[in-house]
């Protein structure tokens, strides 16, 4: 099961315009862990995620997936192991129908015929989108697109699931659907988000990024109790951990 381990060692990424997005980041995520990477806008979350399957090349440092060091030669294997769901589902969905889109990955893995159909249908059923299989992706709602984007990755049966803001812009029902899908994925999962309530529900471990550096890495409960740390990183304690506004009298301020 060692291929379920993600290890980032002294990673640094500098964009061509000189912006330092990631400075000397190191962590190790083991099998079955559910880890949230949180931080303010521009903290480097998306940049960091894109290094985990080689979409971006590190300026310095290393990424290891299991025993394999990420390099040009190992990219195909790494991409088979690490399933990546992008922030904007429109970037991910490009085939004429949902079925074709979900089949894109399995076909690239060399699967054919009924095996592809089975993989596609299993993934679509898993995300509750089997009824959408004949639809063109551009006719779907935001929540449906997100679910289908997740299915496109699940169809490749990855060992590690990486998601960039999986619930951003979704209504509460669609958000809950995505959270249920993530809860059902038993292998390693890593995601970035601004939804700290979701982090509280889904992740035992949280990493806070601030200006390209890790400010905290530890149990989610402990991190969310540290008000000073959260404020320094431009974050807020999740509502679930804040005191009830009605009990504290703060509710009066929001009454009409």
């Amino acid at each position: 099961m060692s291929h379920h381990i993600v290890e980032v060692i002294h990673l640094q990424h500098i964009y061509p315009d000189g912006t330092i997005a990631i400075r000397d980041v190191s962590f190790r995520i083991t099998h079955g862990e559910s880890v949230a990477i949180i931080g303010a806008n521009g903290a480097g979350k998306s940049t960091l995620l894109q290094h985990l399957n080689g979409c971006l090349e590190a300026t310095s440092g290393q990424v290891r997936i299991g025993d394999t060091l990420l390099s040009k030669g190992t990219l195909p294997d790494i991409r088979r192991t690490v399933g990546m769901v992008f922030q904007n589902p429109d970037d991910q969905l490009f085939m004429p129908t949902v079925f074709d889109d979900v089949a894109f990955g399995p076909l690239n893995l060399g699967l054919v015929g009924t095996e592809v159909e089975k993989r596609v249908m299993d993934a679509l059923i898993q995300v509750g989108a089997a009824h959408l299989r004949a639809k063109p992706p551009y006719h779907l709602s935001g929540g449906e697109k997100k679910r289908v984007a997740i299915a496109t990755v699940l169809a490749m049966t990855p060992d590690i699931l990486v998601l960039d803001e999986p619930v951003s812009g979704l209504d509460p029902f669609a958000r809950r659907q995505i959270m249920t899908i993530l809860q059902e994925f038993n292998h390693t999962k890593i995601f970035t988000t601004h939804d700290l309530n979701m982090v509280l529900e889904l992740c035992q471990r949280t990493i806070i990024l601030h200006e390209g550096e890790i400010m905290a890495d530890g149990p989610t409960g402990d991190i969310f109790q540290n008000d000073v740390l959260l404020a320094a990183c431009h974050l807020e304690k999740p509502f679930a951990l804040q005191l009830c506004p009605a009990c504290t009298g703060a509710a009066g301020a929001i009454k009409p």
Partner: peptide
């Protein structure tokens, strides 16, 4: 970005 998403799925 689209090309990255395609590469991520084994293209």
């Amino acid at each position: 970005r689209i090309h990255s998403a395609m590469l991520a799925r084994g293209f």
